[in-house]
Design a protein around this nucleic acid. Structure first.
Lengths: 229, 229
DNA sequence: ACAAAAGTGTTGTGCGTACACCCATGC
DNA sequence: GCATGGGTGTACGCACAACACTTTTGT
């Protein structure tokens, strides 16, 4: 094989994942205590070095599967952290990725067996390196994004109620929403299917389950109209 | 020095810049014919390998200065291209960056002497590797971003007229805008200073120059209100 | 005088917000 | 029968789009 770029500098490249989940009415993050030096034992995101034979997305999906058992997770790279001394070990660049997963579909045993934990978003401990900054940034991004794209559904079970969805948005946007208006807004998009079944976990009366209709959403999206919560 | 991560895979990492400019009423891109194999002679973005002692932003700024003479340019990384065979030479990951510059302040001689050219956005030739995809993506991003943040001013001279600004937005959004409404919208934000001076290049009557008031914008932005064109 | 671009005024519609209200059910 | 959360109805105001209109000036 011809080496076109011999002599050019090479870099260690990590992939770090900010993994969001939602349970009850809490937005959560998957964290683990780092198992190798430097800063062994500090709270960390899930990550790893990029192997020679994987794209960044493939590496991120592999990491997600390793810790949650899930495949084809919704994820997006959002920033490269490239400060020279960000890792006190050696120079490592990190591609930060955020992922949205349905906790109820994840393999909790697997997660536990690796020593990872779901931690409420408002109880995040100090993290190693610049991982705290990554979380901050990812939060800002899903906050912004949730206003224009229906990313919420990635975090909820297949069947969910409108009040549940509202709680999720309140957790992401960190503000109370008017339930009447939220309901109208959401249903006006017509990307939902109402099911003939109620959830009675949170109230006596019970709330109807809905399902996200991917097909309808695609059509809507292609026709150019946006979300806007 | 302790090697914490010896044995981990290393990668070639390029920085490629999608450089936007605006002249008259045309959005333009800075392109150059590639000077080394593979695909020598094909149209390419400005780029280079990341050196061991630079952050990505520093590398991008250095590249911008090399081709335009400008410093402290507005730029943002937006995506990593990591397909295994994206560069037919060797595996190279590329951090794509877009930059917005004021052509009128750039060193056109320098640009020319390096053989680079400003090319109208609707006359972009086929580009090497995945550079075409990078341009597509960058366009989508500034289109989206221009609706919520005042990135337009990065592309115009210090002094500009409202009709000029409108033409820029029309070029970015690729649609005609109503001049009456555009004007009202822009001026309602109150982040402009009207100057007592007219530009007569484009009309007999002449249009008043305005200046972007960074201070006012910062205050506005901090108080949470957004742009929304 | 007229063309052409800059700039103003007016009006209707739709959407978000606020908030009052009714409904179903377990205790 | 009352507390609790689910769900509906209405009314106001603002932001925006549409478009008719006036102003300025070079030729």
């Amino acid at each position: 094989m011809v080496e076109f770029y011999s002599g050019e500098p090479k870099h260690l490249l990590a992939v770090d994942c900010v993994i969001f989940g939602f349970d009850k009415d809490q937005l959560k993050l998957l964290l683990v205590k780092r198992g190798r030096p430097p800063q062994e034992g500090g709270w960390s995101l899930m990550g790893g070095f990029l192997p020679p034979d994987e794209t960044l997305e493939e590496a991120a999906q592999r990491i997600l599967t390793k810790w949650t058992g899930l495949k084809n997770v919704f994820l997006e790279q959002f920033y490269n952290f490239s400060k020279l001394d960000r890792d006190p070990g050696e120079r490592v660049l990190s591609v930060a990725v955020y992922a949205l997963i349905k906790i109820d579909e994840s393999d909790k045993e697997l997660t536990k067996s690796h020593g990872a934990e779901w931690i409420d978003i408002d109880k995040i401990p100090k993290l190693i390196f610049d991982h705290g900054q990554m979380v901050e940034m990812a939060l800002g991004i899903i906050k912004h994004k949730s206003r224009f794209e229906p990313i919420g559904f990635e975090l909820l079970p297949e069947k969910f109620t409108i009040p549940q969805l509202q709680k999720l948005y309140e957790a992401i946007l960190q503000q109370k929403l008017d339930n009447a208006n939220f309901r109208k807004k959401i249903l006006s998009m017509k990307v939902f299917q109402k099911l003939n079944e109620k959830d009675k976990e949170f109230s006596k009366r019970g709330a109807f389950y809905y399902q996200f209709d991917q097909e309808k959403y695609k059509k809507l999206n292609e026709s150019g109209s946006l979300f806007g919560i």
